[in-house]
Each structure stands twice: as structure tokens, then as C-alpha cells.
């Protein structure tokens, strides 16, 4: 960025500029990940095969790409997201919460909040939607080999935790202890309740569930996630903490983890922002020079500390 002054230089010496210039590239590179081929704005037609009501405002939908070949060849990494289109209403971003080994369908859990999520809640099996996926980066599970994992999910934040947890459990041998702390406001606000007994029974997983307030018949822990976490005292030695949930929960859980001695680079979280394009152009989801849609949604706490404070 040379700044020119009128006296010192002129641009009369014109250069041959090739168009488009081939030497232009971004100053930072994206981590390798599966990417959507072809026109990145064009959703793949898909059919809703199943709708699972989870809570009063969360539904899980399973979709199958209409093109058998694309469905068969569809690859993604845990933590990557997809944009679901309800044509005529719009698109919204959700994490693919089925594990990559699940080849029969893609699963998304959707909390009703705005226009698109309300439309998704009205879908029935057989309805047509569009899917743009996979988008974004993913959990760096390869880098975690040999380490213990402490997974923390709060509310709908359990969706990304679910995919990485199921993925890790499939290759348990490569990892140390895998623990899960899943909290929600009340038992009625817990998505995947039907899977919780299996998680408890899984010998490879140390699962803890908590709710904010005492509730009749609740036999698990009661308390806010950061407090339960301090009670559980996970050992920060050779351990990565992965947490997803509402911003307020992230804030206090990170504080608790730091208190327990987790260094910022061992705390991994996912961010949510309003997104439109999903491919790093439209200008909504950036934090400083990083775009949550391509540089995220997965960040370590260390990376977030280096970004401008605008979350």
C-alpha cells in the first residue's frame, strides 16, 4: 500500500495487467476441508425424510439429497454446517449433527427463532428443501488424537457436540477419556432425550446431564453448566474442552475452564452469526478479518482472543 504524493511519483508507466490477475490470493489460507462443488449458491434439492420433535421449540429433521450419486458421495467433517433453504422463505445455517459415518441421511436440529426456522418447523416428511453443504471448517479431531476430550453442550448447542461426540466414539481407541456435560434449562428443553440413556450406558463415554432448576423426577445434576463443570473438575492435562451453547454460557464456561487450568488453545468452541452467502463474501458474519462462515464456525479460545472483540 504505497501512498503516492503528487510530487514523487505518477502512474504513467502503465503495466500490462492480466485480467483477472493470477497472483492474487488471500493472505491467510483456509484449513483443508470438504467443500461444496459447483455453484456455491445453488442448493442441492433434498427431501425431508423424518421430523423428530425434540422440545417445544426444537425439531430435528433428516434430509436426503435427491441426487443419489451426490448423496452417496457426500462427504463432510464433524462441525461443518449446511444452509437449509425453504424456497420462498429463505435460508438459514445449521450444523450437520449426524456423524460423517451416517450415509443414509443428513440430520439438522433447528430451534425456532426467526422466519426461516419457523418455516422449517412447518415442514413434513416428503417436503422439498434445498441444502448447501458442507460449509465452514470443522473440529480438528485429527489433531486431538491421544488426548482426552471434555465435551460441553448447552441447549441447542448440543447439536454440534453430538456430531463430534459420535464421531470420536466411533474411533475411541485413538483418544483418552471422552466426557460429556450436557445441560439445558429443564428436562423439557433437552433435545436428544431419547438418546441420553444410551449415552449414559456407553462404557466409552462419561456422560453428565444437568438442568438449571430442580425438577420432579430428574435424577441427574441440578445447576448451571459452569458450576457443574467446577464440581466435575476435569483434568486439563492433555485434554481438550469443546463447548457449544448460547453466548452467555460460553462466557462463563470458558471462565470456569480457565480456572481449572485449561489453556486457551485447548478450549474449542463454535460461533453463530447471521449468515447469507456462507462463502465468505456477503459481509455479515465477520469478526475483524475472519468470516465465521469460512474461517469458522469452529475456533479455539486462543484464536478468538486474537480477534477483535465483536461477538
Amino acid at each position: 500500500m504505497a501512498s503516492k504524493t503528487s510530487s514523487s511519483s505518477t502512474d504513467l508507466q502503465t503495466r500490462q495487467i492480466s485480467k483477472p490477475a493470477t497472483d492474487i490470493s488471500m493472505r491467510h489460507t483456509l484449513s483443508p476441508r470438504p467443500m461444496m462443488p459447483g455453484n456455491p449458491y445453488l442448493p442441492m434439492p433434498a427431501t425431508v425424510t423424518e421430523i423428530i420433535p425434540e422440545t417445544a421449540n426444537i425439531k430435528t429433521l433428516r434430509v436426503v439429497l435427491e441426487d443419489d450419486e451426490r448423496m452417496r458421495d457426500f462427504k463432510f467433517q464433524p462441525g461443518q454446517v449446511g444452509q437449509i433453504s425453504v424456497f420462498g422463505v429463505g435460508e438459514a445455517t445449521f450444523v450437520i449433527n449426524s456423524p460423517p459415518s451416517q450415509k443414509a441421511y443428513l440430520q439438522f436440529s433447528v430451534m425456532r427463532a426467526g422466519e426461516v426456522t419457523a418455516a422449517i418447523h412447518k415442514l413434513s416428511p416428503g417436503d422439498k428443501v434445498g441444502v448447501r453443504a458442507p460449509l465452514g471448517n470443522h473440529f480438528p479431531w485429527q489433531e486431538w488424537k491421544g488426548k482426552s476430550l471434555f465435551l460441553v453442550g448447552g441447549g441447542i448447542g448440543m447439536a454440534p457436540i453430538r456430531t463430534i461426540m459420535l464421531h470420536l466414539l466411533e474411533q475411541k481407541g485413538d483418544y483418552g477419556k471422552i466426557s460429556l456435560l450436557y445441560g439445558a434449562r429443564s428436562p423439557r428443553d433437552m433435545a436428544y432425550a431419547y438418546e441420553m440413556p444410551a449415552w449414559l450406558d456407553n462404557p466409552d463415554l462419561d456422560a453428565t446431564f444437568c438442568i438449571d432448576q430442580p425438577f420432579d423426577g430428574w435424577s441427574h445434576k441440578v445447576g448451571l453448566i459452569p458450576n457443574i463443570l467446577l464440581e466435575l473438575k476435569p483434568n486439563p492435562q492433555n485434554c481438550v474442552a469443546v463447548l457449544c451453547g448460547p453466548p452467555i454460557m460460553i462466557k462463563f464456561t470458558v471462565q470456569a475452564l480457565e480456572k481449572l487450568g485449561f489453556p486457551p488453545e485447548s478450549i474449542v468452541t463454535t460461533l453463530e452469526k447471521r449468515m447469507k452467502c456462507g462463502i465468505g463474501i456477503c459481509g455479515r458474519c465477520n469478526i475483524g478479518g475472519r468470516y465465521v462462515c469460512v474461517d469458522g464456525p469452529v475456533f479455539t479460545w486462543k484464536q478468538l482472543q486474537e480477534l477483535p472483540p465483536e461477538i
Partner: peptide
């Protein structure tokens, strides 16, 4: 405009066609 639309992680096909 060329940089983010043509040289970013994804090339924008609509922009590219017109550019």
C-alpha cells in the same frame, strides 16, 4: 471486488460471468 469474488475461498459464478 475481484479479490473476494474471484480469488477468495469460493469463486462467485455470477460475478465471474459478468466480470
Amino acid at each position: 471486488l475481484d479479490r473476494p469474488f474471484l480469488h477468495g475461498p469460493y469463486a462467485d459464478p455470477y460475478y465471474r460471468a459478468r466480470r
